[in-house]
Design a binder for these strands. Structure first.
Lengths: 100, 100
DNA sequence: TCATGTACTTTCCACTAGGGAAAGTACTTT
DNA sequence: AAAGTACTTTCCCTAGTGGAAAGTACATGA
């Protein structure tokens, strides 16, 4: 019933959730989606990379540098575990809020 | 999409989840269920009370003092909001916090 | 060519929350 | 009187967060 602290921090939970929904996402897209500053996103992305959860790919669009993030397999399974653990914690309450 | 920080802290999330599943719970039951120390539970329970989410009732069992916790209406709705917000964050991934 | 701009990254800083340990409180029991 | 129960509070210390600002590397505009 441990909630992985690397994922649990709100900003990182949002990053991981965004990445879980896509194959790859641009730095700017994630930053704007979450409404965080460059430095905050950069730092959290590095933390996730260090944990082995996120892959950071650098490339170019035209001649301008660009950064993309994606979840590693490890990141995907850590996220799935995290959500499962959340369910275990929350579900005894019998709440019936459903997605959608 | 804000995750109420009072509820988000892992230990408090667990406390609130336990209380959401019951009408009232004893101090010792919650402490043992979560596997935390007296001082940790006491501090988090106070924090939840200060936030208006938990009611702390003191009484006796025989001649021994005992403490019970319960969610206030405000606490129940804050928890429901919290879970709804979690679901919004997580759902694009196709996973769900509350299977139904 | 020099200044500015883009796209981040890193450093600095100031704060705060969270846990463990230990001491404190108010009884009750032995 | 000493010890135990059931917590509460204090003390201390560390790690985590965000914002601001400076740094890096390359590209472009005047």
């Amino acid at each position: 019933m441990e909630l992985d602290p690397v994922i649990h921090a709100p900003t990182r939970l949002q990053i991981v959730s965004v990445l879980a929904a896509a194959e790859e996402a641009e730095f700017g897209f994630v930053r704007d989606t979450l409404g965080v500053s460059d430095s905050v996103l950069s730092k959290h992305a590095s933390a996730l990379e260090t944990a082995g959860y996120v892959r950071i790919r650098k490339g170019y669009v035209g001649k301008r540098p660009r950064t993309w993030f994606s979840l590693t397999e490890q990141g995907r399974s850590a996220f799935a575990d995290y959500v499962r653990n959340l369910q275990k914690i929350v579900s005894p309450s019998g709440l019936t809020v459903l997605p959608g």
